[in-house]
Design a protein around this nucleic acid. Structure first.
Length: 706
DNA sequence: TTGCAAGGGATTTTT
DNA sequence: TCCCTTGCAA
């Protein structure tokens, strides 16, 4: 079918697509066809403007988004055309690609055999560094330090610059740790996620000709989810588009929910200033939800102060009012959700097109139990990602070490799994030796083994050295390297059948290893470059194996609001809409944090196409004790007046407001004079016709609205 | 060295 | 309530 830009796009979308010269900001509300704009713009540039695909860069944040964009472009203009050198990918993967070609020009000792480490390794490295510096990890929490280092890096603050700040003890500690941490990374030829981008910018600073090269190679730069960029990503985009200014960014400031990770939504708000003469297009027509849902969502997010004014509208019709349900306990809430879903399914709805969205992963358990009891198929997103699993990381450690023998993190893991009688004591001896020679731990190992007295440990370690060397030599192909690990590492045997039957964990680990082998096999068949190096850099940037494509699930999706961004469902249940849960209690005392929680709630609600149900509990028990909850302020802010709310509480305890006429079992009818709270309890003052004015706790009084 | 048990801490998490 | 880290015993 021929590409029909006029027919497929609405006027605003078309404007953004046809704007080829100069900067362009597309403010795309939820469900307004943002991906469509990017993909059509790519197609437009290539087919209508004759831009070579290799001169275009399209950047996203997730592999899933990148993959989706790629396949949609394929559909629009055909695979042959779009595969010809078009750079579509995540910030991290594209920067990784640049560094793979250019990192040696940095002159910091990195080589193009660098390995990318994940969150987990990053924390472990900080732990190692703390130990080395004799700093107590209890006083200096590794997580916090990791967070601070990451924050510094993403603001382009180097290890030397940070020491100048150091006010609080943790800041001083961070500065100290940061320096050694970065040194260890360099020595190990390792890059953390932030380095991928930060080092590209350092490279541009150091070698202007490299910056120039990429700046002129990419005549057009397109960025998705621009509200989520942090300072260094922003800087990268700016550098790449410096000469030509052909930059298109698409985003929604109302869906900025990653500030806690350094995303800075002020950057999208300042786009017009940063890129003078920018065209600004607002996409406000929503193609996803009903007007009822949008009204509620609009009213909610309009309370935020720092935002571009936007108001979503739709042709989809009013639809059913938003449902609101008050439960006594999380269990009751869960059973309400389960029975509602059950009713929908009986009515012919597809559970795979529904989602239960919550603030915290810990809320999933109760829901899961209720769905289980009702025999409703479900799927939980979150928990341990495939490549984070111990057994998978173990295999990867062998591969990494074979590829890059300087990788001490991989060494530490591989050498102890399976156990070879090489523990803490031996390791510190080895470290000593390595330090003397100025080599990595693995490279010092043969000497250490040479000094060791004969025995099982010695034999095992000799075999280990042998294996790693072989992996390195087989390194031209990922699959042969992986086969070596499976054949000789002894990892597989750890999870073999012997021992207690029905060991669930063991079995699942075995299955994961099998799955791992399948992914290597697939990589071998599908990739142009099947080398171990290519494999490792791909794997490092993919966190979840089973990326959640709509419709591929097996049942109702249980998911956090964060992970739900970008997805849509026919029916959505947002649970735990309580003060302290959603908004989260850690956000309560900062207005900036509350605004982010509000956006998060907005994201959750705008996932729904047809029906949105919001539920909350009045009593919730958590680890810090049980307590009474107030409904989330966001419920009020959505202005769900009773006429607009369907399906109230099972207990028939409607929210009361001043002026309501109510019915009490004993006192008869009366008028509500006042609603107030004392602690966590809600009270009403009612003027009863027969008995006069009474103060009642709504929780206990059986009140019916008349 | 390693495995197990008790204790402390507990948002969210694209890469 | 649950999970991860740490400390202790075999």
């Amino acid at each position: 079918m021929p590409l029909d830009f006029q027919g497929d796009l609405n006027p605003q979308q078309l404007r953004a697509v046809e704007k080829c010269k100069g900067p362009c900001l597309v403010l795309a509300g939820a469900g307004s066809g943002k991906t469509r704009v990017i993909t059509y713009k790519l197609a437009y540039l290539i087919t209508k403007r004759g831009i070579a695909p290799s001169h275009i860069m399209a950047v996203t944040f997730t592999n899933k988004a990148a993959g989706e964009m790629r396949s949609r472009v394929d559909v629009l203009i055909g695979t042959d055309l779009s595969r010809k050198g078009l750079w579509i990918g995540t910030f991290h993967s594209l920067c990784g690609r640049i560094l793979r070609e250019q990192i040696e020009k940095l002159g910091l000792g990195y080589t193009n055999r660098f390995v990318i480490i994940d969150e987990d390794d990053r924390t472990r490295l900080v732990r190692q560094v703390l130990k080395e510096l004799n700093m107590d990890p209890k006083t200096y929490e590794p997580q916090k330090i990791v967070y601070r280092i990451s924050d510094a890096k993403s603001n382009l603050v180097g290890p030397e610059e940070l020491s100048d700040y150091g006010y609080s003890y943790i800041e001083k500690a961070t500065a100290t740790v940061y320096k050694l941490y970065q040194k260890r990374l360099q020595q190990g030829n390792l890059l953390d996620f932030d380095d991928l981008i930060a080092l590209v910018i350092r490279l541009f600073d150091k070698c202007p000709e490299v910056e120039e090269y990429y700046g002129s190679k990419f005549e057009h730069v397109l960025v998705d989810e621009y509200q989520d960029v942090n300072k260094m990503q922003y800087e990268l985009v700016k550098r790449l588009s410096k000469t030509h200014g052909n930059v298109t960014v698409v985003g929604d400031d109302d869906q900025s929910i990653y500030a806690f990770r350094g995303a800075n939504s002020k950057l999208i708000l300042g786009f017009e200033k940063d890129y003078p003469g920018a065209m600004v297009v607002k996409l406000e027509q929503n193609y996803r939800s009903t007007q009822s849902i949008l009204d509620a969502a609009n009213s909610l997010v309009a309370r935020n102060r720092t935002r571009f004014a936007k108001k979503l509208w739709t042709d989809n019709g009013t639809g059913t009012p938003v449902h609101l349900f008050e439960a006594l306990t999380p269990e009751e809430e869960a059973s309400f959700v389960a029975s509602s879903i059950d009713a929908l399914v009986r009515g012919g709805a597809d559970p795979r097109d529904m989602a239960v969205i919550y603030r915290m992963n810990s809320q999933s358990r109760v829901i899961e139990e209720a769905l289980l009891a009702s025999n409703i198929p479900y799927q939980i997103v979150g928990g341990l990602k495939f490549y984070q699993r111990q057994e998978v990381k173990d295999v990867l450690a062998y591969l990494r070490l074979g590829f890059n023998p300087s990788d001490n993190l991989a060494f530490e893991r591989a050498v102890s799994r399976p156990s070879r009688g090489f523990g803490d004591k031996s390791l510190s001896e080895l470290k000593q030796l390595a330090a003397e020679h100025g080599t990595s731990w693995f490279m010092a190992l043969p000497e250490w083994v040479g000094q060791a007295k004969a025995g099982k440990t010695k034999d095992k370690l000799e075999a280990f050295v042998d294996l790693i060397v072989h992996i390195g030599a087989a390194g031209e192909s990922a699959i042969s390297a992986a086969n070596l690990v499976f054949a000789s590492s002894g990892l597989l045997e750890q999870y073999s059948d012997e021992g207690e039957e029905g060991d669930f964990e063991r079995q699942s680990r075995r299955e994961n290893l099998g799955e791992f082998m399948r992914t290597v096999d697939e990589f071998d068949r599908m990739s142009e470059d099947c080398s171990l190096g290519a494999y490792l850099s791909q794997v490092a940037l993919i966190q979840d194996q089973d990326s959640m494509k709509p419709g591929t699930g097996t049942g109702v999706l249980l998911i956090t609001a964060h992970s739900a961004k970008g997805l849509e469902f026919s029916d959505v249940f947002v649970v735990g809409a309580e003060e302290g849960v959603f908004p989260h209690r850690r956000a309560l005392d900062s207005s900036a944090d509350i605004e982010e929680e509000r956006r998060l709630f907005y994201v959750a609600c705008t996932r729904a196409r047809k029906e949105l149900s919001i539920t909350y509990c009045t009593q919730r028990t958590s680890y810090y004790g049980s307590g009474f909850q107030e409904p989330s302020r966001f419920i009020k802010e959505m202005e769900l007046t009773r006429e607009k709310v369907a399906g109230v509480s099972s207990r028939e305890r409607p929210e009361l407001i001043e002026g309501d006429t109510v019915m009490h079992n004993i006192f008869g009818t009366g008028k509500v004079l006042e609603v107030f709270y004392d602690g966590n309890n809600q009270y009403v003052v009612i003027d009863f016709k027969k008995v006069g004015i009474k103060k009642l706790a709504t929780q206990y009084a059986q009140l019916k609205k008349v």
